[in-house]
Design a protein around this nucleic acid. Structure first.
Lengths: 194, 194, 194, 194
DNA sequence: CATGAATGAGAGTTCATTCAT
DNA sequence: GATGAATGAACTCTCATTCAT
């Protein structure tokens, strides 16, 4: 595949991303993507066979790009508590945003294409987030910022809370205050005074 | 609508439930339900206009029936901790079951039919679950079984963890051990020794 | 068929008339009539087999009742010109009314169920109208009110003009003034000063 | 849309025309046209959205083509009376033809899609026909061929008679002699000896 | 590579008509 | 007679997918 094709493929993925953000996964048809990209019907099939394939590649692109964002923050000079708060604030923003998010599409996709599979991007993201939080807590404990019995379990628990908030944000609705309360709860359990 | 029609309507809802369990919400067509019920194409339209309507009625039936299950347990003679553990075990079973569950369909439905609306059944269930847990914790604190600063917040936090576990069970997968760890974490935070 | 059945049949026809007035002929379904009559689906079939049959009976009822109206006017004491003008005014009103008229339904019906047939109610009405106008003109000529070479032909011509106005009223639209002009034209040709 | 598409669109319109001629407007389904054209179900939707759209385009094509026929005749060298007679004969032929005519479909269409609207093709045709006849009469009067008080009104009256004959031809039936009688009547009123 | 016309399967929906009660 | 549930045919419309150019 030539350079030009690579460009086009990327263009399709970026455009398709917007479509998935807007309509979720199951509601998106090949036609939707064709129209959003303003390419020919047959043209799309030169690059992708179906929406699932496109979606997976969108996710891959997504994770490649967002990994960078994470590391940006972590290399900054700050206490563990600062970074954790920063991280939680970021999560809050994302889950309250609701628009411009692939969340619903991701869930829909993984409902249909059940786990166990090796290439479960979502699982990797979850696990690596747990790792990061865990590390952060460990550092915090060492610095005397946090109090924590079992850093791994606490990190995992935080992630489940965040996941719970996220799914609720997309189904029953979640207020900004509700998220704040959970963040405070998390910090309190780590022995941080508000 | 006569007695017979009521029976048939219920039969359709029960059959449709199975279809939703199996295929989620968005993937289910009127035709799927027609075929599952082994009725005629036009016959279904005598009772329902579209899958969303059917789904909502399935949910209503569901919640009517599950309400009973809850109260059964609570009227038993047991300590607060016992009941809480029972509740959490039940949740565990349900979220590990993954089959025979409307969870995915419910999520899909509420992705498309966003919150804010008054008739958000899911929200009602969430809120009432929070209430129940809160009450339980309060009783437990009075009995000296639990230690807890803010019962309401803790109850809410528990529900978010459970929601997090549930969505993860349906996307990235969750092991029985992982659920147990979270249950233990919850109990530990309430000051209960394992 | 008992007295009760006769009543019901008449009720159905009167109700169906309203439906045909509102929706024309081809757009009316058995279901429409069932719903308008608020009777059972099967019930309608006890009396009629299809919409065409109902429509024909509606027309028959119609013509029986309107015959009376005609004779009412004619028995009044008035000059031929007076009666003719009266007749033309009546026609004007009807064709401008456009609502509450079976006209479109009638046309639609006869498009589908082409002429030649003996029971062409429309033809009978046309012919009898020609007869009446002819008679009127003859009387008028005898009285010296009208001048006319060929009464039969003139009567026919008047009817064609009226038919032309009617169909135009239902397709391209016709103003009150346009109708007046035609009426004046007719009268002028009969030698009547405006 | 390429040249080929233009050809196909025209082919569809020509084929659809036959269907409308045969079945009127309301009775024609997209399926009918699909089958007549021997194209695929979806194929038709590439070009048209519904039967009303197709019908309007059929009418447009029709009027474009028939305009030419008119002018052909008028450019010939002949007296006004000759041309008028020619015109009336043409009308006679058309209205007696009954087959191969869009008349019924046109009426049905305009029953449903009532006037007032600017794009009422039928009205344009009517008005332009009135203009032509009017002009013809004026010329005839100047030449001493015709006698006429009010050319505009007479032209309009002629058109209403023709419309009346046309609708009668499609409902109660009209004989060739009947049409001849009306033509003679028209000419006589213009002072032309048969 | 790219296009977009074409196909045909399949979902939604509406009704005429029947029939057990 | 009367009801209305049930059936199945018929239509509309949308897309995934192919293929000649």
């Amino acid at each position: 595949m030539g350079e030009k094709s690579v460009q086009k493929k990327k263009f399709i993925l970026e455009t398709a991303r917007k479509v998935f953000v807007e309509k979720g996964f199951k509601n998106v048809t090949m036609k939707d993507i064709v129209e959003a990209c303003e390419i020919s019907r047959g043209g799309l099939y030169l690059y992708f066979d179906n929406t699932a394939q496109i979606f997976l590649e969108v996710l891959k692109l997504e994770s490649e790009e967002t990994d960078d964002v994470f590391s940006d923050k972590i290399t900054e000079d700050a206490t563990a508590a600062d970074i954790l708060v920063l991280f939680l604030q970021e999560q809050k923003e994302e889950l309250l945003r609701r628009q411009n998010t692939l969340t619903e599409a991701v869930y829909e996709y993984y409902f249909e294409n059940h786990p166990t599979k090796k290439d479960n991007v979502l699982k990797k993201q979850f696990d690596s987030a747990v790792k990061i939080i865990e590390k952060l807590i460990e550092v915090g404990v060492e610095n005397g910022e946090f109090y924590c019995d079992d850093c791994t379990e606490t990190a995992r628990n935080i992630m489940f809370v965040l996941e719970g908030l996220k799914i609720c944000a997309h189904t029953i609705g979640v207020t900004s205050e509700a998220v704040d309360r959970e963040i405070l709860h998390i910090l309190k359990n780590l022995g941080v005074e508000a």
